[in-house]
Design a protein around this nucleic acid. Sequence first.
DNA 1: TGACGTAGAGAACCAGCGTTCTCTAGGGTA
DNA 2: TACCCTAGAGAACGCTGGTTCTCTACGTCA
Lengths: 193, 193
Amino acid sequence: MDQGAARDQVLDAAEELFYGRGIQAVGMDDIRSLSGVSLKRLYQLFATKDRLVEAYLERRDLSWRRRLADHVEACDDPEGRIIAVFDWLERWFAEPGFRGCAWINSFGELGATSATVATQARRHKQAFRSYLETLAAEADLPRELAGQLLLLAEGAMVTAGILGAPETAAQARTAAGLLVESARRARRAAPAE
Amino acid sequence: MDQGAARDQVLDAAEELFYGRGIQAVGMDDIRSLSGVSLKRLYQLFATKDRLVEAYLERRDLSWRRRLADHVEACDDPEGRIIAVFDWLERWFAEPGFRGCAWINSFGELGATSATVATQARRHKQAFRSYLETLAAEADLPRELAGQLLLLAEGAMVTAGILGAPETAAQARTAAGLLVESARRARRAAPAE
DNA sequence: TGACGTAGAGAACCAGCGTTCTCTAGGGTA
DNA sequence: TACCCTAGAGAACGCTGGTTCTCTACGTCA
């Protein structure tokens, strides 16, 4: 097994375990067992557990945002793309093993004691906010709308994670539609802004 | 020092430390140091750390909801009470040491491994949702509105906790106002529902 | 005053875990 | 075949932290 494949297997195992059980509940030995990569190799790839956690969050950030963007960009209508964000959330919440947002969870667990985790969480949420701002701009809607949509999406992730209510995403989508409509109406009333 | 006073001091210390650093980052010895209550007494009051965590979350649930209700009920107008929820959030977010929602954080940390924590978090969020439903009913607004308000409030807590943006609560309040307005408009269009 | 019960301080015990070390086996090369 | 390098398995090490134990001191009651 070459370096790259080992790295992938380690990160696959890390993602499954860290996301599913929490970071502190998973030992390096668990990672080793699930990945089949020896401890020696594991420590050659990631010098400390902290580095592994960082790599896990970074890789997941890329794939999470990629999956979201792939779904959203299948829609041509700019306002439809905003709503599509919430469609994708609904799909995500229904995936087996869904346990809330990885960054919200890690931040709750280690935000106060690990600068690495706090930074990753902030970065991820900022990137998500920027993405919503882009979508709002493309629909010619004001930037404040993006902030409001962010709150709805974050609230939906938390609520779906804790209460496990599958209808949460649909509620968020309805609310998002109403806020988009309000923003559109405001634009019409004062088009030059 | 009598039993009751010792219990209060332990819970005060637990709240400060668990909320500020996370549950797993705090040892029983830290609780003992800060509270000034000996380990022996501590274990007489709470047989295990898990019990102490449960008592911490229970007591905080009562005081959190009490503080919210006290602020909200100072307002006479039913729709104003809904908006007052977000005023109170803004005030809370600005408190020194604010670090997000204790239940979201504990759930992220231990939701997957501790039934106690998962239950407490669910109970707290359900109670908050019920409260919002009460406020919506008093304003003669539909129950779905409460679900939407819950998402905004949860999203604001998470975003304020991670990004530390103090304007988050104001954004949520604005969005809440728009959703209340939409609900009112819908009611006017179909009053009998 | 003397025996007793209680409470606190802190050591002790034990398990878990991050990290490192040792030993061994296998494979490639002269 | 003999040597050497590498990698893996798993033991070892050191630390932390939950929980319990021991020892001492003090206050109480006969």
